[in-house]
Design a protein around this nucleic acid. Structure first.
Lengths: 111, 111
DNA sequence: ACATCATATGACGCATTTATCATATATAGT
DNA sequence: ACTATATATGATAAATGCGTCATATGATGT
């Protein structure tokens, strides 16, 4: 299909909370509280999105005492670091064209 | 930012209509009617989504008689063909893990 | 057994996305 | 000017996404 797999990948990462979580987990594994503190997001917000990341195979968990340590899946990590470069080029092109502005794009789809 | 640019790219392509249109335009330029016929989608559906693709810099238009011929932007075309390979690897991994099934994924986010 | 800390889950409301129907515009041919 | 063809646009409704509040679970220490 190709569409289904791209959609999964794209939808997971085109949410600010999940994107931020994944970027942090690119560096090192973290507990929920650590993520909350680092990002300044509410705990349930982080947990809900971690569940989504887990369902989609983006992360793995390990219980450690009272905590749950989340780590990025290896394949995903590799995939993201590859795509990252392309997106950076894309970003500079977007700016040249004036499509991407400082405030970002509020609504992507509305015409 | 990086998030904003990824989000734009991801949201544009994680819609079946737009994805299908873009895939066709990877091969050759086409008019609206040609796209409608090839995809079996309603005309206004295609037009709405072409407008979105245009706003986001994915496509360019040229008037030719009564028709409007749409073509994929060069940078985008290159970007997509690069990312395509990564996504194909990702797809086979998704299948191995059992995350991606035949029916696809209905709701990505719901937990 | 109880209190506390860490995390998960359910429900709800609001915002966004998207297809569809109806209608408008614009070009070409007669 | 009129008609037909090609395309664009506006409004609306249904579905989905997402954060928040409240509450539940589960482990640790006393």
């Amino acid at each position: 299909m190709m569409y289904e797999s791209f959609k999964l990948f794209a939808r997971v990462l085109s949410n600010r909370t999940r994107f931020d979580i994944v970027m942090l987990l690119m560096e090192r594994e973290m507990s929920v509280l650590e993520l909350c503190d680092a990002l300044g997001y509410e705990q349930s917000r982080v947990s809900h999105n971690l569940r989504c990341l887990l369902n989609c195979g983006f992360v793995e968990v390990e219980r450690r005492g009272k905590r749950r340590i989340y780590r990025l899946n290896g394949e995903i990590k590799e995939l993201i670091s590859k795509i990252k470069n392309h997106i950076q080029l894309y970003e500079s092109w977007l700016r040249e064209c004036g499509i991407l502005r400082e405030e970002g794009i509020a609504k992507v789809m509305v015409e």
